[in-house]
């Protein structure tokens, strides 16, 4: 903070700067294990550890019917007011699909 160098032209220089743009905005996070999160981004770091607020988690579960070998896709949703997400499970982060 004491030198201004990192602030000069504080535009977008690396991918994480794009994540910063979404601070205090709702984001979409895709995670390993067919999980997705939508929530407001409150914090993140270089590992993409994150804290999200008002989170909706969507888990896609594929049930296989043992007799017919038919695949039934089931979607489970959960909500959480405040959630820390460990970065090693994160696949992608993006603004929500609205304009």
């Amino acid at each position: 903070m004491d030198d201004h160098a990192p602030l000069e032209g504080a535009g977008i220089e690396e991918p994480l700067d794009l994540v910063r743009l979404s601070l205090d905005e709702r984001i979409y996070v895709k995670l390993r294990g067919d999980r997705e999160l939508r929530g407001k981004l409150h914090a993140y770091d270089g590992h993409l550890n994150m804290v999200l607020g008002d989170v909706e988690e969507t888990i896609t579960v594929v049930d296989v019917n043992e007799e017919t070998a038919e695949e039934v896709i089931r979607i489970v949703k959960r909500n959480c007011e405040m959630l820390f997400v460990r970065g090693d499970g994160v696949i992608l982060v993006s603004p929500p699909s609205r304009a």
Binding site: M1, P6, L7, L16, D17, R20, L23, D24, L31, H42, A43, Y44, D45, V51, G53, C80, E81, M82, L83, F84, V85, R86, G89
Partner: peptide
């Protein structure tokens, strides 16, 4: 760890966002 569910009233979100912004500047 995959997630940690936190007690929302104990989180100062404005401060947390600032802390995240500062972190990037270092």
């Amino acid at each position: 760890v995959r997630y940690v569910q936190l007690p929302a009233p104990s989180v100062d979100t404005a401060l947390l966002q600032d802390a995240a912004r500062r972190e990037r500047q270092q």
